[in-house]
Design a protein around this nucleic acid. Sequence first.
DNA 1: ATTCCGATTGCCT
DNA 2: GGCAATCGGAATG
Length: 202
Amino acid sequence: MEIDFSKKLPISFYQQDTISVANQLIGKIIVKIDEKNSILAGKIVEVEAYTQYKDEASHSFVGMTKRNKAMFEIGGILYVYFIYGMYFCANIVTNKKDIGDAVLIRAVEPIFNLEQISINRYGRKDITNKQKLNLTNGPGKFCAGFGINTTHNFVDLTSNSIFILDGNEEKIEIGVSERIGINKSKELQRRFYLKGSQFLSR
DNA sequence: ATTCCGATTGCCT
DNA sequence: GGCAATCGGAATG
């Protein structure tokens, strides 16, 4: 896959209102280039917005802590945290400095280097069709497949290690729903997904 | 120091 | 549908 760096999203993209960024992220291409220069890429098909204010489910609701510090930076970096003793979740930090907002990447359609993503997920490149659909269809699965962990916390999304490209200009339909796996602020409609995608978390 | 529990996943019935 | 795995974060004492 050739990467068109001219399509890399500018820093200003991330500094917009968080709900707006969440919507616009659907259909975009997230790229990771690892230490061995191998390229992984996927289309973002599902995200969730988390904001400091009026959102009790957000890590930042209680203010800045050691864990959520990245959320308070200016939009355009990654916030990665460890959860349930064994998984990682990756977020796109949004909005202005000192506002603790971010967008969780919940699911991605793998589009390049499925072999490496399979190895990262299952330890082998030959997998069943069902496993192919399950490669990156959840926040923990996406991080595992793309090799994202807390060493990527604070990574600059305008760098060449992890970044996001504008997708095709095709018209897409975006669905909206309540968020998944939370117990507070359940009523907020802040999950956004690509309608019809086979790679959603549910 | 202790306690509770989580922005998940995979396996089980 | 239920639930165990597994451990660090945050609140509390």
